[in-house]
Design a protein around this nucleic acid. Structure first.
Lengths: 148, 148
DNA sequence: CGTATTTATCATATTGTCATGAGAAACACA
DNA sequence: TGTGTTTCTCATGACAATATGATAAATACG
């Protein structure tokens, strides 16, 4: 669905959102924690910084941090620099023009699904994912205490 | 969503389904009609033949034709040899294990969508697409006569 | 049998993605 | 000012996907 690079971006940004307090986080740390190739991740995050999604600082105590509040940062913004989520995949048969007026054979059955995918990336925020993760791990680690 | 090769396969099979009557269709013809690289398409269709989806015949009056009735041939069967539709993309964050028990941050929001995509490919048949195409072009070419 | 036609197959080129390594540039801090 | 840390950037390589061209193998038909 998304490329390896896009996946790295997503996971790294998620990590940054979970470590927002304090100093920016170095590529070294992220790469180690998430088992990603260091220099490749560096390039990837640099592009996100150029897009204004991350802020970067060089030198000691430097690193990356979110430049946009996690509750206003959509998955689309993170993945889009690396994967063409809307151009490609809109028409399943790869036609340059495919609309209700000039439909391909799959158009009517496919477009609803394509829109759902598009909507997922555009409307899901980083914060949504973190909240969901906290709920999930909380439920497991909660040991039933809260339900009593 | 699917690779270039998978798209070629889908379009070529669709073409074959629309030209089922008479002799098998040569790679030459398909490649020309659909603007695809000839030898690459040959290899692609050969693999579908090995999978039992197409039947191939060499020599004069040879070519490819469907080996499975179009109303029992799913898009999944056509694309699956070229694209791993279910393994990859199941977990948005690329985790090897991602289930309700061990969910990633995106699991709950993503799994429904992933299942819909999977279902689309598994349950949509070649015949479904052709029917829809006929209805669409029929409506345009029909010139309003039938609606009177 | 001989020939033209068509798929099957091999070798190779091209392109894009993923990845590594080295060094330049910027910065904090003593 | 000097030194170490970290991002930034370039050069390069590995690998898979895509594509081209040549040739072998099979087949219909005269």
């Amino acid at each position: 669905m998304i490329s390896q690079t896009g996946e790295y971006a997503l996971r790294a940004v998620l990590y940054l959102a979970q470590h927002q307090e304090g100093d920016p986080v170095s590529v070294e740390t992220i790469a180690e924690e998430l088992s990603m190739p260091r220099n490749y991740l560096s390039k990837t995050l640099h592009l996100l910084a150029k897009r204004g999604i991350l802020a970067s600082a060089r030198g000691p105590r430097g690193g990356f941090e979110l430049a946009i509040p996690s509750n206003r940062l959509s998955l689309f913004e993170i993945v889009e620099p690396f994967d063409d989520l809307e151009g490609r995949g809109q028409c399943l048969l790869g036609r340059p023009e495919c609309s209700d007026q000039t439909p391909c054979a799959a158009h009517h059955r496919w477009k609803d699904l394509a829109r759902r995918v598009s909507t997922f990336f555009r409307e899901t925020t980083v914060d949504d994912l973190i909240t969901e993760l906290n709920e999930a791990t909380g439920a497991v680690a909660g040991n039933g205490r809260g339900a009593g």
